[in-house]
Nucleic acid binder design. Structure first.
Lengths: 339, 339
DNA sequence: TTGTACGCGTTATCAG
DNA sequence: CTGATAACGCGTACAA
C-alpha cells in the first residue's frame, strides 16, 4: 500500500533522485518530467516516509509543545485549549507535526528525548513561571525554541501579548470613567503575565497623577476561587473599581461583590482580562481585554519556523496586540469601544 | 554530542549488535557485557535515534491523538485538557510520544499523514459525534485505533465511562428523594455521551414505575448558555428536579432557576454530570456524577498499546466506572453518599 | 537536466 | 552469546 520513492521512480520511468527532487521542489528538474512525476505521485498517493527522511536529512518536521504544569491553575483552561489549537493548525498548515509534552517536571523522560538532536526541529515552550526549571535543559539542547509568554532570560525568543500595555489601558479606562479607588486582583507573582499586568496597573495610576495605594492590590492565583478571596479582602478598603487580571478572577469577584449586596457597576466597576466566552455572558457583561490564544500559537509556530529556516544569534520576539472590550461592568455605555 | 550505537560499541569494546541488544533488553546477552555496556550507555548519555529506529524496525513509539472539532462546545474544555493530560502522562510512562491533531475536518492533511503506515503506531480518536467523517479514513488506514467515547461502529475499540448507568443512577437518586417531576436538560443528540445519558434518565424513570413525560426533556448543547435556555423552557412545565447532562448546563440552569426566584433545592432539586471543579463551588454545591477524564486518557493508551502488542481481530472496549457525588443541590444530606 | 552511489543510525538475519 | 552484514527509504554530493 505505502509506495516508496523507488517504486514511484520505476512507475514514472525516472530515477529515485529525480522523484526526490520533484517531491522536494528542487528547481533542477525539467518542467515536463516534473509534471509527469507529479501525476504519478498523486495517482499513487505517495507520501514520503518520515523516518527515512529524518534519518537522511538529519532534520524533522516535528515541533514539540512543552507545557510544564499545564494542568495546574496557572494556565486558565480555555486559554490553553485555544493555544494548542492555534499551534496545531499553524503547524499543520506549514507541514509540521506537533508533539505533545504536558505534565510536571518529573516528566523528564519526554523532555530529554525531545531535546535530543534529530527528534524535533524545534520547541514551543509554554512557561508557567519565571525561570521554569525546564528552561535551562531545553536551552542547553541547542534546539531552536520559542517561549509563549515573556521570559527574563535574554537567550530566549518568545511571543507574548502586550500584558503591560493592555493592563495600563484598561486601568486608564476605569480612571477616565471617574473611578479613583481602582483596586486590582493580580495574578501570582511568579507568572510573568501577572507581573506585567500589575506593572501596567501601576503605570496607569501613576500616569493619571495618582499614588498607588498598596492596600488596593491583592495577589491571587488567576482562579475564580482566588478572585472571590481577593475581592473579599479588597472590599474592606472600599474600592470603587476593580481590575481583575483574569476573567475567571473577575467572575469570582463578581459573586463576592454581589454577596456583599453591592451593585455592578454602580457601587463598584469591574474589569477583567482575557475575554473568555464567560465574560460576555456575565451579568453585567464584563469589560475586559481580549487576547486571542490561537494567535499566540500561530505566532509561535511562525517564529519558530523562521528561526529554523534562518538561524540567527540573537533571540527574536513577537508581541501581539490586544483589544479593549468595553461592556457594561465598568459603567460606561456599550458603544464606547476603543482599540 | 549525540552518540551513536556504533560509538557506544567502540567505547565498550563490543559490536553494535550487542549494544543494540542491550538497549532493547534482548535476553541473549551475557550478564557481564550487559552491565558493562549499560554503564557506557549511561555515562555517555546515549539515546537511540528515533528516526533510524523507526526506519529499521518499521514501527514507531508515537501515537496520534486525533480530535476533530475539539475546540467546539462539544467537548467541555476542562474535560479536554484533563483527557490530554492523562494521555500524555500514560504515553510518557510507556515510552511513547503523543502527536497532536486537533481541528476540524478540513484538516485532512495531518490525518492523512498520520494514517500512513509507519508514522504512528496507533491512534487515539476523540469522537465528538456519532459517525464522525474522520472515522472511516482512519479505520481504512488499518492503524490500530481506540476511540474515546462509545461508537456504534462495531469495528472500533473504545474506552468510555458508563454514561447510561451513571445517568440512571443519578436520576434514580432524585426519584428516591421524593421528586416526581424530574426533568432533564440533555446534551446534543449527535453526541453518543448525550444520547446515553438521556437513555439512562429514561430508564431510571421507567424502572421507578413512572411514565416519561416528554415535555420534561429538553435537548441542549452541553454549554452553560444552553443550560439557561433549557431551564427557561422547562420551568414552564413545573419540574421539581432537573438532571442536567453536564455541570456547565447545570450552572446555567442554576442561574435561571435563581432568576425565576426559586430556591435550590427546596423548590427545584438540581443535578449535573462531570464533577468539574465548578460543581463543588456552586451555591449550593452540585450533586453530580464524577468522571475522571485523565483516567479515560490513560485507559485509551493502555488499550491501544495492548492492541498493538497483541493484535486481535475483534475490537475491545473498556468501560470506566463513575461515582455519584451527592451534594446539597438535590436536597439530601451531605453525608448521604453512595457509590 | 538526470542518474549513480554512498551514508544516515538501527534492527534483524544469519553465521560462528 | 556475539559479530558481521544486509536492509529500511530517502537526501545529496558527484558524475555524466
Amino acid at each position: 500500500m505505502a509506495r516508496t520513492l523507488e517504486q514511484i521512480a520505476e512507475l514514472s520511468g525516472v530515477s529515485r533522485s529525480t522523484v526526490s527532487r520533484v517531491v522536494n521542489d528542487d528547481p533542477r528538474v525539467s518542467e515536463a518530467t516534473r509534471e509527469h512525476v507529479r501525476d504519478v505521485v498523486r495517482r499513487e498517493g505517495y507520501r514520503p516516509n518520515l523516518a527515512a527522511r529524518g534519518l537522511a536529512s538529519g532534520t524533522t518536521n516535528v515541533i514539540a509543545a512543552v507545557m510544564p504544569g499545564a494542568v495546574d491553575n496557572i494556565l486558565s483552561d480555555p486559554f490553553f485549549v485555544s493555544l494548542l489549537h492555534g499551534l496545531a493548525v499553524a503547524a499543520d498548515e506549514r507541514d509540521h507535526f506537533v508533539m505533545l509534552s504536558l505534565g510536571d517536571t518529573s516528566f523528564r523522560h519526554t523532555v530529554d528525548e525531545i531535546a535530543r538532536q534529530g527528534v524535533v526541529a524545534g520547541i514551543v515552550f509554554v512557561a508557567g513561571q519565571v525561570d521554569d526549571p525546564l528552561l535551562e535543559p531545553l536551552l542547553a539542547s541547542q534546539t531552536p525554541m520559542v517561549s509563549i509568554g515573556r521570559s527574563d532570560d535574554d537567550r530566549v525568543s518568545y511571543v507574548d501579548v502586550d500584558n503591560r500595555g493592555s493592563a495600563q489601558q484598561i486601568t486608564s479606562h476605569l480612571l477616565r470613567l471617574g473611578h479613583r479607588r481602582v483596586a486590582t486582583i493580580a495574578g501570582p507573582n511568579f507568572a510573568p503575565a501577572a507581573a506585567d499586568r500589575l506593572a501596567g496597573y501601576r503605570a496607569a495610576i501613576e500616569a493619571f497623577g495618582l499614588r498607588v495605594d498598596e492596600t488596593l492590590i491583592y495577589e491571587s492565583d488567576f482562579s475564580e476561587a482566588g478572585g472571590r478571596v481577593g475581592m473579599r479582602a479588597l472590599l474592606e478598603h472600599r474600592p470603587d473599581a476593580v481590575f481583575a487580571a483574569s476573567d475567571r478572577m473577575a467572575a469570582g469577584a463578581l459573586n463576592e461583590i454581589r454577596a456583599a449586596g453591592l451593585q455592578i457597576p454602580d457601587d463598584i466597576a469591574l474589569a477583567g482580562f482575557d475575554d473568555m466566552p464567560l465574560a460576555a455572558e456575565m451579568e453585567p457583561p464584563l469589560t475586559t481585554v481580549r487576547q486571542r490564544p490561537e494567535r499566540l500559537g500561530e505566532a509561535a509556530v511562525a517564529l519558530l519556523l523562521d528561526m529554523i529556516a534562518t538561524p540567527a544569534s540573537s533571540p527574536r520576539r513577537t508581541i501581539l496586540p490586544t483589544d479593549l472590550i468595553v461592556r457594561a461592568s465598568c459603567g460606561s455605555r456599550q458603544d464606547q469601544k476603543e482599540r
